[in-house]
């Protein structure tokens, strides 16, 4: 199904990752640990009907039906670079609504300092959620500082390549924060809560030494198990054509987001 979209700002000039790669190479552990699992196993997932709840430190808590939300806003198409913490990258044409627009509708209170996101919990539709010890404590949770959440780059995506978001990419609505590692982009969001303290995040809870709250793309800060200085470009062509390119600070969005972290030690707050 096609989405009615308008061209948005911040479009990356790099060639876009083929749609087939974007929809068949996914980290979405709710459906399994392998990259191919989400495309294979997300068919049973019901992304509609769906409501998104916005609550916490807001004057007007909202419960929004996903299609009403889409109809009420201008869905922008924005081509963003995506850098996974596993040292690979894509360039994805998302269709979405700036998170700030939606949060403002709920009238944020001054006590709000952070934004906590919670994903859906449906073990009967998401086989990865019934896997045993050693994996994520479901549901997946993520968080942003309020100023990060309100940044014009931060998007709630409802589609890609001009079509409604496929289940394996986080239908019906997911977060896209292009200057952070991909795991910050929580999928299938049910609840957004404005809070006054730093909320827990799933990967940080699992391995705090490897995944920080900020998770800003940074070639200077290595993952304990691999280097972050460069990245493989997914879908850039087979065995011999696949490129490896240098990773850029804030994934190339330093011009837009570096002021958010002025004076912060990015090695300490990784």
């Amino acid at each position: 199904a096609g989405l009615r979209t308008q061209p948005g700002p911040f479009n990356a000039p790099e060639p876009q990752t083929p749609r087939d790669a974007v929809t068949h190479y996914n980290n979405f552990y709710e459906f399994g640990l392998e990259k191919e699992d989400p495309a294979r196993l997300a068919g049973q997932f019901h992304a509609r009907p769906w409501t998104l709840r916005i609550d916490g430190a807001v004057a007007k808590p909202l419960t929004l039906d996903i299609d009403t939300l889409i109809a009420r806003h201008t869905v922008e198409s924005r081509v963003y670079r995506m850098r996974c913490v596993e040292a690979w990258s894509m360039v994805i044409p998302w269709d979405g609504i700036p998170l700030a627009q939606i949060l403002r509708e709920a009238e944020i209170l001054s006590s709000a300092k952070y934004v906590a996101f919670r994903s859906v919990l449906r073990p009967d539709e998401m086989p990865g959620q019934s896997m045993g010890a050693g994996t994520i404590d479901w549901p997946y949770v993520e968080g942003l500082r309020l100023d990060e959440a309100m940044h014009p780059l931060t998007l709630l995506a409802v589609g890609l390549y001009g079509d409604i978001l496929p289940n394996q990419n986080g239908a019906p609505i997911r977060l896209v924060v292009p200057w952070k590692y991909g795991f910050k982009g929580i999928k299938s969001i049910t609840t957004i809560t404005l809070v006054d303290t730093m909320p827990p995040t799933s990967w940080n809870r699992l391995a705090a030494d490897e995944y920080g709250f900020y998770a800003n793309v940074n070639p200077e800060v290595d993952h304990p198990r691999w280097s972050q200085t460069s990245e493989r470009v997914i879908g850039s062509g087979g065995f011999f054509g696949e490129r490896r390119q240098p990773t850029r600070l804030f994934n190339g969005y330093a011009e837009q987001v570096a002021p958010l972290y002025a004076g912060m030690d990015l090695h300490r707050f990784y």
């Binding site: 087939d20 790669a21 068949h24 190479y25 990259k35 191919e36 690979w88 493989r232 997914i234 879908g235 062509g237 087979g238 065995f239 011999f240 696949e242």
Partner: peptide
């Protein structure tokens, strides 16, 4: 290797 060389090894054939 044959699959990889013919782009049949998924989106990230090297991995």
């Amino acid at each position: 290797f044959w699959l990889g060389a013919h782009n049949q090894l998924g989106a990230d054939p090297v991995r």
